[in-house]
């Protein structure tokens, strides 16, 4: 049974089409991920499904209710962790939850019971009476999660839940999300982190420039591209100059080269012959190969395959070719 049905949902901001006729369904108890770069339309989609933004056209049902006509009903069944943390700095963690609990018409006694339980789950019970403003981002995000869970939502929307968190907290939050999903909560998650989508989601919708370009399980998405013979390999060489990178790029069998750091090149190829041609370029330039690995396709490759470009901000796309090296750098820090 689908608990979320999205049908040709569209949102325009003046001339910009932020979300362009997207359609998807999420099964009850599922963990659905919207994967895409910044500005792809992930947050706009989430905001529409949470009744915070009105669609320009199209329809969607959340928990069986129309998002426009039955917005009030939808709100009773959802929890939201938005991009920005929804907590008041000058209220303590407990006061924050009390305030939002009351707005959700939860009885006082239930609020304090659930608060206690939830704080324990995220290991924040020690900090219940401290002002939220004194917390680190990671602590805030943990309280923020408990806030979204306070009304025991059927569906939990998580917009970039691990953004800006350290690896340790990121792992903890991911584990917690998994736990919640096992407990029966349907989760809709957006992320620009491939790995996150890969390990968390049952179904991934790859979204780019407002359109869903691929929609399947992570496994299916990955095997789809390896069958098409799209492969990549990692090349570690001593000193890849811009000249060499562009020489390799110009080879017909090579579809894309991305430079990840001073000695590593990731080369996407569309033919088995490519490797020999790359070798000959390297040999010609008298460069030592330190290491070479063939890569199994990951979601990054999937993204590249479906969108024809690497995952990065739209702003980055317009930089001149000369900027490619740095572009590769950026892609690394963001894509991983």
């Amino acid at each position: 049974m689908s608990t979320i049905e999205v049908d040709k949902l569209t949102r325009k901001f003046k001339d910009l089409v932020a979300v362009d006729h997207i359609s998807f369904k999420v099964e009850k108890g599922g963990l659905f991920g919207l994967l895409g770069p910044n500005g792809a339309g992930k947050s706009t989609t989430i905001r529409m499904l949470c009744t915070l933004l009105r669609p320009t056209s199209g329809e969607a049902k959340v928990a069986g209710f129309e998002i426009v006509k039955e917005a009030g009903k939808v709100r009773e069944h959802i929890g939201l962790v938005a991009e920005k943390i929804i907590l008041y700095d000058r209220l303590t963690a407990r006061e924050n939850l009390k305030f939002f609990g009351r707005l959700n018409h939860i009885p006082e006694k239930t609020i304090s019971e659930r608060t206690k339980k939830l704080f324990k789950l995220v290991k924040m019970e020690k900090w219940a009476n401290s002002l939220a403003g004194t917390f680190s981002t990671g602590m805030k995000q943990r309280i923020n999660l408990t806030r979204a869970l306070l009304n025991m939502p059927e569906i939990l929307f998580l917009d970039e839940p691990t953004l800006g968190l350290d690896p340790q907290t990121t792992r903890a939050i991911r584990d917690f999300i998994k736990e919640l999903n096992k407990g029966g909560i349907t989760i809709i998650l957006t992320t620009h982190i491939m790995q996150e989508a890969d390990i968390l989601c049952d179904i991934i919708g790859i979204i780019d420039q407002g359109k869903i370009v691929a929609l399947d399980t992570p496994q299916n998405l990955k095997s789809a591209i390896s069958q098409q013979g799209k492969t990549a390999f990692d090349l570690n060489i001593s000193n890849p100059s811009a000249q060499i990178v562009s020489q390799i790029e110009q080879l017909e069998t090579v579809s894309l080269v991305s430079q990840k750091n001073d000695y590593n090149l990731k080369i996407y190829v569309n033919s088995e012959e490519a490797i020999y041609e790359v070798m000959s370029v390297i040999k010609k330039n008298k460069i030592t190969i330190k290491n070479i690995t063939t890569l199994a396709p990951n979601l990054e490759d999937v993204f590249l395959h479906f969108t024809g470009h690497e995952m990065r901000d739209k702003a980055d796309e317009k930089v001149p070719l000369d900027h490619h090296r740095h572009g590769g750098f950026k892609a690394r820090s963001r894509v991983r």
Binding site: K73, A82, K84, I86, H105
Partner: peptide
């Protein structure tokens, strides 16, 4: 600006 308004707006009130 802080985004906390979303928290109030998403509550069924």
């Amino acid at each position: 600006e802080l985004g906390t308004l979303d928290g109030i707006l998403v509550a069924p009130i």
